[in-house]
């Protein structure tokens, strides 16, 4: 359990840094949803299936959908701004 938690925390931190420093906005959005996914698995590990389900459906699913729609709405998905 400790190893899995360490792996997930590392994935989350790397995804967070990537989301803020990467050049492409698309990479940033994908990293943010990767962070939500790792957080979902961590919640399962912490014996909270309810919260994991919410984070998976609402955070990783709907949140990423909103961010992806924002990419096209704000015209950030082609080239640098």
């Amino acid at each position: 359990m400790t190893l899995i938690a360490l792996l997930l925390v590392l994935v989350m931190v790397v995804a967070a840094v990537t989301a803020l420093l990467s050049r492409s906005h698309l990479t940033a959005v994908v990293s943010t949803s990767l962070l939500s996914l790792a957080l979902t698995l961590l919640f399962v590990l912490l014996k909270a299936p309810d919260v994991a389900m919410t984070e998976g459906v609402v955070g990783a699913g709907l949140g990423s959908l909103i961010l992806a729609m924002a990419l096209s709405r704000l015209a950030l998905n082609r080239g640098e701004d």
Partner: peptide
């Protein structure tokens, strides 16, 4: 596990 919030999002989508 589950409920109104999670299922509501699925219904919305």
């Amino acid at each position: 596990p589950g409920g109104g919030f999670q299922g509501g999002v699925v219904v919305a989508v």
